[in-house]
Design a protein around this nucleic acid. Structure first.
Lengths: 243, 243
DNA sequence: TAGCGATCAATTGTCAGACAAGTTATTGAC
DNA sequence: GTCAATAACTTGTCTGACAATTGATCGCTA
């Protein structure tokens, strides 16, 4: 049988979605259909199905046992809503049902500071684009976000009507460069004067800070961002696995 | 060819270790040997090799591209030192070269509060074991940790000379029950009076708080823990993946 | 009838070989 | 020298089969 899938990215994409849906629809502890049955249903070979299953097993969503079957394990959907997945604040807020709007917004183009230069892995400290914005929920600021990018990745001219404020969403929609992973450092800090002013709190009040470095598929640094969150409005969690 | 592997857990174990070693030995960006060559080297079929490779691809360690090859991607070891891996503060501190010792230490057995009862998924609010301790570095407290466990999982009688303060390390050494994942919620909070006293800071000072629920393989809650960290001594990060 | 061991069916784990699809380097014609 | 066709190599998928493990069934015996 020929592979008549026209997608550039493989049919695995669709297969993964179908399988994920099946898993989330199945109650924890229940057994999935056998591999031959599933493969026939989904129209793929058992080898392909098994490779996809391995993905979910690695993520801890399912548990396979020889001679018995494949079972859905407990925490299921929890994983999907954690920090493992990189998404914009807007998309996160929408998912958790918190209506947000954008407050103060600003774009600058300036020479990178030494710290920014180092974080972006720039040989020469060239011009960078700095996007800063405030997120508001329930008519009060709840997050203060910075994005710092090399000008050749994003310049102020690139931004058009489709730009909603989220640099991440914009880059994902544009599709170039290809984004892959983000290394996010998590800390609690006292608000600096500028942060306190943006968030409408007292200088020295406690805020949650994310410092993130966004990598492309080739390992280039695409975006260096600093985010300040007011405690109480967002809940971040991460799934940790035993060695 | 017969599968003459005597291990109860499959030969995948060994295959995984061999592959992981190969990946960590290979510089980021470099190409791995082709699948047929690797399969022959490791003495497994290509199908089995590919399933194992899928594990590492899911973890973001490698990147496969049709027609080109399989490449080791950049962050490699970074992932291994992030929050994805669940480990004790002692083990973490040792890895980052921060010498620590245990300060105040206390074990209580009392009836669970409503919140603890709910977190531990207990039908009836039975007796729980509470282990609290302070971690010191450079002769000052830097972390204040609580572990709350059902008494049938851990009672004060279980603790012997091998107990170093870390409940996690103790449970891992004992091997029963089997630990699997921990859901850790991350937040920044102002120190409550008790926390401030334990950490030697002012009431209201900013601390990083982890609230973790530790699951067994069967989905039971083994441990509910609350940890307070003084900013500056620990650096936590997480790798986030795009879509 | 109750108990128990052998047998059988179902399921996942692995294997072998083949072809499809995509990429890159080589080759050859102009 | 340029550029298109070609070949070689690599990953993606398919097919069919057998091995290993587990749970249920069946039949025998006491």
């Amino acid at each position: 049988m020929l592979n008549m899938n026209p997608n550039t990215s493989p049919l695995s994409q669709q297969l993964h979605e179908q399988l994920l849906q099946l898993i989330t629809e199945t109650s924890p502890g229940e057994r999935l259909p056998s591999e031959p049955a599933l493969a026939k249903d989904l129209g793929v070979s058992r080898a392909t199905l098994r490779e996809a299953m391995r993905t979910f097993e690695t993520q801890g969503l399912i548990h396979r046992k020889q001679g018995v079957g494949t079972f859905v394990v407990h925490p299921t959907h929890v994983i999907e809503s954690g920090l493992e997945k990189l998404e914009s604040i807007e998309s996160l807020a929408e998912r958790i049902g918190l209506p947000v709007k954008m407050g103060d917004f600003q774009i600058d183009e300036r020479t990178a500071s030494e710290e920014e230069c180092k974080a972006l892995l720039l040989e020469t400290c060239e011009t960078v684009t700095v996007v800063s914005r405030v997120i508001e929920a329930e008519d009060r600021p709840v997050a203060y976000l910075f994005d710092i990018l090399p000008q050749d990745v994003l310049s102020s001219d690139d931004l058009d009507f489709s730009f909603t404020g989220s640099v991440l969403d914009f880059l994902l929609r544009r599709g170039d460069p290809e984004l892959r992973t983000s290394r996010t450092e998590i800390g609690a800090v006292a608000a600096a004067p500028e942060v306190a002013r943006a968030l409408g709190i007292q200088r020295g009040d406690v805020v949650l800070r994310f410092v993130a470095t966004l990598f492309s598929g080739e390992g280039q640094v695409i975006d260096y961002s600093i985010s300040y969150f007011l405690p109480g409005y967002f809940r971040f969690h991460v799934i940790r696995r035993v060695g």
